[in-house]
Design a protein around this nucleic acid. Structure first.
Lengths: 338, 338
DNA sequence: TTGAAAGCGTTACCAG
DNA sequence: CTGGTAACGCTTTCAA
C-alpha cells in the first residue's frame, strides 16, 4: 500500500530486517542474540551472518519494554577531586565482562539526589548505586521497591536496600590517636555545613568530640561550606582567634587542601599547624601536598557495591550491609607541635 | 477476563492507569504531560490530579519507541583530575532548565570510545558529546549519521559532526614565549605515548618543535605513558642524561604533576627545573603546587558543546566548528634558569 | 526446533 | 477539543 522500494533511506536495521535477510522468524533472531535455549547451530550461523552483514544492533529501548535495560546507574553529587572517582573505578572494574553498562549522573549542585534517582528509575536501569547523602532513608526505600539499589556511606541498616560504608568512627579514632600521640591538645575539627543527617561526616565529628572529652580536652567544631574555598575562610577565622589550634582535622580532603592553602599563604609549616584530611584522594599522596589522611579504600567500596547490586538484580531480597575498616596514611602535613 | 481487583501489586502506574483514573483517554494524558496543543483547562486539571494521586511518571523507554529519549550522552576516556571535569560542569550548566538529562559514560581504560559511542547510540540518546581522541574521523561520521554529535579537541573540520577545540598551537606559543622569555634554551617537551593521530597533543608538540627551530635551538621530544607515574619515570631519564633540560613543557597537567613530583623528590626548585603544564586543572592553582599552565577554558568548551548539540538536535545539519583561544597562567613552577 | 502472534507504554494520526 | 487506533522493536508464550 505504501512505498515499497523508494531509494533506501539508511534506516537502522531492525530485528525484522535480520529475520527477513536470514529467512527466519523474529523469534529465532531474538533467541540467537540472547543465546537462549533451542536454536540449531545451522540457524544460529545463518542469523549471525545476517546480523554481521546488516550491522544490526538491538535497540535498548525496545528490550526494556519487555525486560532488562542492561544498564547500571550511578548517582553522585560531585565529580573529580573526590572519593567518587575511586568508587567509579572500582565499580567499572567489577562490571568488566558483564553485559551491564555503567552510566553516571552527577548532581553538580544543580540536580538533587532525588531528581537523579527518579530519572534513573524512569529510564528503568536494572540497578542503582547512590551516594544520596542528602536524602531521607524512607524516600530511598520507596524507590528501592522498584529498582535494586546499593547506597554508599550510610550507617543505618535499612531493609529495602544494601549499604556499603567505611567505618567512620574507626577512621576518626585513627586520626585522634595520631594527633594526640604527637602531643597536640588544641585540635579543631572542621566539617561540612550543613551537616546532612545521614552523611558519614557526622560520625567522624561525633567520635572526634568523644575522643577530645575522653582526653580531657575541649572539642571545637567549626562548620564551613564543603569546598576548598570554604575551608580557606574557616582556617583564617580559626587562626585569628584567641586560642588558635595547633592541629586541624578536616572532614574530607578537599577541605584539608583548603586548610593547607591557607597555611601556605601564611607561611605555616606542619609544626605550626598540623593538618589531617579524610578520603586519601590521589593528590594527597603527591609530594608537594603530602597530606596525612584516612584511606577508606574507594575502589573496594565500588567493587563491593557492584557485587551486591548484581546479587540483588539476580533475586536476593534480604538486605546486606558491608563495612570497611579504613587505614591512616601518615604524611608530612602532620608533626609534633612546637 | 483477567483479574480485576486482586490486592494491589505495587506495579508502577502507566498512562492507561492515569487515563482510567481521570476518566479520559490515553491520548489526552499524553497531551497533558507533553503540554501539547488542544487540551481544555478542565481536562488538564483532572489529568494532573490523577497523575499526582497515582504518582505517575512516564517511562523513558516507551517514549523512545516513538520519539526522543531526552538524554544526552557524554563519552570520556577518564574521570577526575582532568579537563573533563570542567567540561562536564560547563555542559551541566548549559543544560540546566532544559528537559534533557546528561549521562556520562567513562572508558577508564576498559571501554574504547567506539564501544561507548555505540552503546549510547543503542540507547538512542538524542545527542552525544565525545572526546573520542583514539577514533578515526570516518568511524565517528558513520555514527553521527544516526545521532547528533559534537566532538571535542579535534582540529579537523568534518561535515557530519560539530567540533569544539582549543587552539593548541596558540597555547604552545604562549608556553614557548614564556620559557624563551625567561632565558631557557634547553627545553624538553614531554608528551603522551602513543601520540594518537587526532589528539590535540600532536598540535602542541608540532608547534613546540617549530618554535625551538625558529629560535635556533634543538627540540627534544620525550614520550611517556599519559600518567603521573609515566611522567615521573621520564623526568628521571631526562635529568640523568648528558645534557639535562632546564625546563620541561608537559603535554598536560597530570604529566606536569609527575614532573613536579620527580623534581620535588630530587629537591629541585623552579630555577633548577621549570615546569609548564597544559589544562589548568583545579589543583594547578593550589599554592602547594602552583603550576604554570595553559587554561583552555574547559567550562566554556562544555557549554558551547551543549549549545551546538541542541542546535543539531533541533535540526541544523551544516557543521559548525568552534575554536577557543587559551590563556597562560603563570605561577611559581617557572623561573629564569640559574 | 521453529514460527506466529500477543503484548509492553507511549505518541501521532484521524475521525467524530 | 476529544477519543480511538495503529504503529514503534523487541521478548515471550504457545502451537505446529
Amino acid at each position: 500500500m505504501t512505498q515499497e522500494r523508494t531509494a533506501l533511506p539508511p534506516r537502522r536495521p531492525t530485528m525484522t530486517d535480520v529475520a527477513n535477510a536470514a529467512g527466519v522468524s523474529k523469534g529465532a533472531v531474538s533467541k540467537v542474540i540472547r543465546d537462549a535455549y533451542g536454536v540449531s547451530p545451522a540457524m544460529r550461523a545463518r542469523v549471525e551472518k545476517a546480523i554481521a552483514q546488516l550491522g544490526y544492533r538491538p535497540r535498548v529501548a525496545a528490550r526494556v519494554m519487555r525486560g532488562q535495560s542492561f544498564t547500571i546507574g550511578l548517582e553522585t553529587p560531585h565529580l573529580g577531586q573526590e572519593l567518587q572517582t575511586l568508587v567509579v573505578e572500582g565499580a567499572a572494574e567489577q562490571l568488566a565482562g558483564s553485559p551491564y553498562q555503567l552510566v553516571i549522573v552527577p548532581g553538580l549542585g544543580r540536580l538533587s539526589a532525588t531528581e537523579i534517582l527518579e530519572s534513573l528509575v524512569d529510564r528503568q536501569v536494572d540497578g542503582i548505586i547512590a551516594i544520596a547523602s542528602d536524602m531521607p532513608t524512607e524516600a530511598i526505600e520507596t524507590l528501592a521497591q522498584h529498582t535494586p539499589m546499593v547506597v554508599l556511606g550510610r550507617h543505618s541498616r535499612p531493609q529495602a536496600f544494601d549499604t556499603v560504608v567505611s567505618d567512620d568512627a574507626a577512621g576518626a579514632d585513627l586520626v585522634m590517636d595520631h594527633l594526640l600521640g604527637l602531643g597536640h591538645t588544641r585540635i579543631t575539627h572542621l566539617t561540612i555545613d550543613p551537616p546532612t543527617a545521614e552523611a558519614p561526616h557526622v560520625f567522624r565529628r561525633d567520635r572526634y568530640v568523644e575522643r577530645m572529652r575522653a582526653a580531657g580536652l575541649r572539642p571545637v567544631v567549626e562548620y564551613a561550606p564543603s569546598t576548598e574555598r570554604g575551608a580557606v575562610a574557616a582556617t583564617s577565622r580559626l587562626l585569628g582567634s584567641d586560642d588558635p589550634p595547633t592541629a586541624i582535622f578536616a572532614g574530607h580532603d578537599a577541605m584539608a587542601l583548603g586548610v593547607l592553602r591557607a597555611a601556605a599563604d601564611l607561611g605555616l609549616g606542619a609544626s605550626d599547624l598540623s593538618v589531617v584530611g579524610y578520603d586519601n584522594i590521589e593528590l594527597a599522596g603527591h609530594p608537594l601536598v603530602s597530606l596525612t589522611t584516612v584511606d577508606h579504600r574507594g575502589t573496594d567500596v565500588g567493587r563491593v557495591a557492584i557485587s551486591l547490586l548484581l546479587e540483588r538484580i539476580n533475586g536476593r531480597t534480604e538486605a546486606k550491609h558491608e563495612c570497611f575498616s579504613p587505614a591512616l596514611r601518615v604524611r608530612r602535613s602532620t608533626a609534633a607541635p612546637r
